[in-house]
Design a protein around this nucleic acid. Structure first.
Lengths: 225, 225
DNA sequence: CCGCCATTGTAAACTAGCCGACAAATGTTG
DNA sequence: CAACATTTGTCGGCTAGTTTACAATGGCGG
């Protein structure tokens, strides 16, 4: 890949707007530029050197396996999102990995230490990054506090609404979402069993609120959710 | 309060170790130095100017009220913790306030904008703060993912263990925690009803694992939890 | 186009934990 | 100390949601 191209791969992310070309080069970008296909396991957080990753294309889920072998979805990462050791601390005893959800996935990465150095030289970057992490924290907090206090149906509605807002193609009150999640995935995200999720989705379909297929989800009228 | 004293109030927090006295003065510290008593409501996040707060003494809980009037505990803040708009973004539509849990509570605060300026001048501060926020995010993430997948008993055990580690006075395997929470508070934190929490605590007491009083919690052998 | 595997659909039995409703105990205040 | 408020204890009944188990469907590779 040409140097020029590498540059633009990062350059088009908001976070790096303030950086000069030479600064971006400092990040030794795209050493780990990687492609993957649906279902592939992409990376273990306990890898060699701490890195920060940037998803350029597709969608992935971050999954953790606990002692009992249960899979928990920690996060869904979309095109343009950063992931990895966002805390700037590497944490070895976490058991996380990423799994591709869409057919084509492209990821580039840079070293955490390079990024830290750059932050020391460019306080504006540090500020932007902090706000970035802060925003992510706020989103997580909100999500989870919904999960705690509401019942499964409300959680599903909230999730679909948020998903539609973030990624849906709007046409008046109709929204189309490209569906790269299985019902089992959705169930895990909203913290319920697969069966309950299926039931609720079908119930929504009966009430003409949504139309679910494996490829896409059609929402007839987003305001009714 | 003397300038000297103000200085030390911030100076003894890790985050500010790298700052010079004059830099700390820039923060116009302790404009909002405040004391409060148990049960007092201390601050609404939708206050005039965005601030960051530092709890110097006592314990408080951050609470949110939703549309239906339900109280949710968002966070428990301990001596030395920062709270407020840590994300560096002010967010007006959140309905949070803080409530004193201990008899004496002391808080000092500074303006977010002053802090931002200081970060721009002092990249090291920026880096430290970013790690700080990141760490907080990681803690929240872990807490919540426990809440999702485990049952009430496990959640209570995990909570007590963490509490003991963070604040307990250890004596071999015995740990004493100063108890500033009611059982209703604990129930909210672990996401269950007050009655269930009471039942589980009594069960633990029957099994000689803990001894609960309103003043303190004694753990006979922390390794057995 | 066939067979296979992942995904989705459905139903019955079971259960953790919620809710309502008090009673008892402990603290607090004048 | 008396009266009141807050916190803790306890008990059924109830229900949302889990679990188990299996059937139907759809999509992909050969």
């Amino acid at each position: 890949m040409s140097e020029e191209l590498k540059y633009w791969y990062l350059r088009d992310h908001k976070l790096f707007w303030t950086l000069s070309m030479s600064q971006i080069k400092q990040l030794c970008i795209i050493v780990g530029y990687k492609k993957a296909k649906k279902g592939d396991i992409i990376y273990f957080s306990s890898s060699d050197v701490p890195r920060i990753f940037l998803l350029k294309k597709g969608n992935i889920k971050i999954v953790e396996i606990d002692e009992d072998g249960n899979e928990t979805i920690k996060d869904i990462i979309q095109k343009g999102d950063l992931f990895g050791e966002l805390t700037l601390e590497n944490d070895k005893n976490s058991n996380e990995y990423a799994k591709a959800l869409t057919d084509e996935v492209a990821i580039c990465s840079f070293l955490m230490s390079d990024f830290e150095n750059l932050m020391l030289q460019n306080p504006n970057l540090a500020l932007t990054y902090t706000k970035f992490v802060g925003l992510k924290m706020k989103r997580i907090k909100n999500n989870y506090s919904n999960l705690m206090s509401k019942d499964a149906k409300t959680r599903l509605f909230t999730f679909i609404k948020e998903w539609a807002e973030k990624e849906g193609k709007k046409d008046g009150n109709k929204v189309t979402i490209e569906n790269y999640l299985t019902q089992a995935d959705i169930a895990q995200i909203i913290g319920t069993s697969r069966q309950t999720a299926t039931q609720l989705l079908n119930e929504m379909e009966e009430n003409q609120l949504i139309f679910y297929t494996r490829k896409e989800i059609l929402i007839d009228d987003i305001t009714k959710l």
